[in-house]
Design a protein around this nucleic acid. Structure first.
Length: 343
DNA sequence: CTCAAGCCACCGGTTACATCA
DNA sequence: ACTGATGTAACCGGTGGCTTG
């Protein structure tokens, strides 16, 4: 070992990480100590988050050569965590995806890793979990959209049939009209004629309302779907989770109309105005297990409807968008998105 | 009590490296 | 052997919470 550099194996098993601690002239306690992972990138600085030594992220080889921490002999390459280490980390993550200092220290000790490595692993793991959750959210939403589109098409067909019926019945009525054209008010209109008249009115009403309902529902879901897709597409900036939430919230009015349509087709908007009058609640059946289960808790936005054809959301009170820390109380309350379903 | 500064942990985004098809 | 895709360890910059003076 060359002077000023400590090399130690962070794993007790012998195939773990080799860390290079460049003590520099001042030694370990000088405050400028820099840890190197295999690969030559600074891994650990003086601070817990490895930011004790600030330098541009992109450093040319020449720059590196000028810095004392770089050695002409390339450090060893980056190593992955061993399966045993990952297994224990996964187990710990399942128990609690946040890492208290005590647990971090204990895990690091057990695994033969630096606490910083454990913290980084948890951060990356949370990010991966969030991505998967978002992908599942998208898949569910897409399925919901597709199902609703199918419903929409069916409604349009039904509407078309009803309109044809209206035309047919109207023609029949006209054939029965008296010389004064006052069929409806005819004193001598037979019972069958009156039934026919009522049938025509109902059919016409259903056709009109059915079309409006179908169009509103379809447009609402379409906007929802498109916005969510935009947010999920690569290259979109900002928080995917929050953006998705914003996309949903941004469609609130439209979604309301779809809800109204699906709650009481042609029967008024009581449901849209008062969600709580309907049969709904968090969809327990949609929560699955970790990799597939998401626990439904991260930022409280992982509730799904089993019946994808009839999904809408109810945003929490207010829309606090100032930030999105998972430990932020606002995110667990005001920012909550809940999925509900109609039975 | 209020405020500013410092510390810390977290997040989203990014990079470099390892691995695999 | 080479290459592109994918996974992941580690990093950066920004942000908010907490503590302290």
């Amino acid at each position: 070992m060359e002077p000023g550099r400590l090399i130690f194996n962070t794993s007790g098993s012998g195939n773990g990480q080799m860390l290079f601690l460049d003590c520099g002239a001042g030694g370990v306690g000088a405050g400028a100590a820099t840890m190197f992972h295999r690969g030559g990138r600074p891994v650990l600085g003086g601070m817990e988050d490895g930011r004790g030594v600030k330098r541009p992220f992109f450093t040319s080889p020449d720059d590196l050569l000028e810095e004392e921490y770089y050695d002409e002999q390339l450090p060893e390459k980056k190593r992955r965590l061993t399966p045993e280490q990952v297994h224990l980390l996964e187990k710990s993550f399942e128990e609690e995806n946040k890492l208290e200092p005590e647990r971090k220290t204990e895990l690091a000790r057990k695994l033969g890793l630096q606490p910083r490595q454990v913290a980084v692993w948890f951060q990356n793991r949370r990010a991966r979990w969030k991505t998967k959750t978002l992908e599942r959210d998208f898949d569910r939403l897409k399925a919901s959209f597709d199902a609703l589109r199918a419903d929409h098409d069916a409604l349009l067909q039904d509407n078309h049939r009803l309109r044809s019926q209206v035309v047919t019945l109207t023609e029949k009525m006209q054939e029965k009209e008296g010389p004064d054209g006052s069929f409806g008010a005819a004193v001598d209109a037979s019972e069958s004629d009156q039934l026919l008249m009522a049938e025509v009115k109902v059919a016409a009403s259903n056709a009109a309302e059915g079309q409006a309902a179908a169009e509103a529902a379809f447009e609402g879901q379409q906007q929802l779907h498109v916005k969510a897709e935009e947010r999920l597409s690569p290259g979109s900036g900002g928080s995917a989770v929050l953006d998705a939430r914003d996309a949903l919230l941004g469609c609130g009015g439209v979604v309301d109309s779809s809800v109204e349509s699906y709650c009481f087709p042609g029967g008024g908007g009581a449901c849209a105005d008062e969600y709580h009058d309907c049969v709904m609640g968090p969809i327990a059946g949609g929560i699955q297990s970790e990799e597939d289960e998401g626990a439904g808790s991260d930022e409280g936005c992982s509730y799904y409807a089993d019946d994808a054809a009839a999904v809408f959301f109810a945003a929490g009170h207010g829309h606090n968008n100032h930030h999105h820390h998972a430990d932020d109380v606002d995110d667990q309350d005001d920012g909550q998105i809940s999925w509900w379903m109609w039975n």
